[in-house]
Nucleic acid binder design. Structure first.
Lengths: 205, 205
DNA sequence: TTATTTTATTAACGCTGTTTATTTACTAAT
DNA sequence: ATTAGTAAATAAACAGCGTTAATAAAATAA
């Protein structure tokens, strides 16, 4: 009897339909401005139906949070395949910044918005979506560190510092605190490359 | 006839009474969780009274935004009095990070929350609260640059990069994305000093 | 065909920021 | 001193929000 299988499938399809519209709304309008009523309107169901598939608005957010890290992990992994560790690390950073520029609202909910659980946790759960993603980054740092390419001893410290620098760039950009950038499209890339050379490289021996 | 003077004074006092409570609520509860009704309760007036003194919730936010920059400007100016340009610049950064740690919600609304007008604008209004503050910072960068202490030619680029790095650190910290930091109180300072030496110093020739 | 479970909806609750109409308190002029 | 005019404070409401309880409809199982 494949009925229950179909039911599970249908339920999953509904969840994904909600998530797809939610992603569109969150990314276009932001978290606060996205309303359950508008979301329900778009999938042509009543607002209450949403709550059959998701506990609350936050659970939808959480799912998108995970999807964001799944996407970021893809490009990070791709960058991780480059043989030279330092080149690979640089490409990871480029992928990170590009991701922030391409999906600013995803980046927002992944790194800027208020949430409960910290990402750079001491016991980073390697199975969580964020944990996996950051794990690859820290792994590459360790690789560079082991190869004697970094000056800072502790790879975690190095990871935080590098991440901080590029997150700062992305965050200020996304929040419009870098008005100068909005003139030219390529300035962010320029700053990034400048940063990669002047910061990352000078860490190297 | 000092009546109209008293009226103006009373109006200003009321505004400040509202702002004082608003600051306390915003800083303790955050922007979204702070309600006009709670604010009105605390000053023992009705919610509608708030709207006699402020156009809307956003205008209260704006006022606090300015107050935050007034406070930050104070400590930045103090750091600016140090004779040696590089030491002075370092102290400015320390003051900035310390400010973020001491008044996380002020820092939040100054640098993280969504607002309309960008800070690092091309035509930075030198009379605005944020403009003055950042002006001092960029001024010091220019001083360092003129003294040949910085490698990056464009002082604005240098300012953005340095600001990005330390903002990234502060922002990740405030948003709880640096779980590892919450163990020890001094780790943020450690990372900051590490950053000052490994980043700021390596920019110098 | 009947009983049971799942799904969707309607209507409401308690909350939000904000506005309108009204009352209260104060100042100015007769 | 009384009246007219102005500013300040309020109660009540509006439209919106996330969320939930009760109810109706549909699909499945017996």
């Amino acid at each position: 009897m494949g009925i229950s299988e179909r039911k599970v499938r249908e339920r999953e399809e509904m969840r994904e339909r909600i998530l797809k519209v939610a992603a569109d709304l969150f990314i276009r309008e932001g978290y606060e401005r996205t309303t359950i009523r508008a979301l329900a309107d778009r999938i042509e169901y009543s607002p209450a139906t949403i709550y059959i598939y998701f506990k609350d608005k936050d659970e939808i957010f959480q799912s998108l949070f995970e999807e964001g890290f799944t996407r970021l992990t893809e490009v990070i992994l791709e960058a991780g395949q480059i043989a030279d560790p330092l080149d690979s690390l640089k490409e990871m950073v480029r992928a990170h910044v590009k991701f922030a520029k391409t999906y600013p609202e995803f980046y927002d909910l992944m790194f800027i918005m208020r949430i409960s659980t910290p990402i750079f946790n001491t016991d980073l759960d390697p199975d969580s979506f964020s944990g996996k993603c950051i794990g690859h980054f820290i792994g590459k740092i360790k690789e560079c560190s082991a190869a004697g390419l970094l000056r800072i001893q502790d790879p975690t410290i190095a990871a935080i510092e590098i991440w901080s620098f590029f997150h700062g760039l992305c965050a200020l950009h996304i929040r419009g605190r870098l008005g100068v950038l909005h003139q030219s499209e390529t300035v962010l890339e320029g700053l990034m490359n400048e940063g990669l050379e002047s910061y990352l490289l000078t860490i190297g021996t």
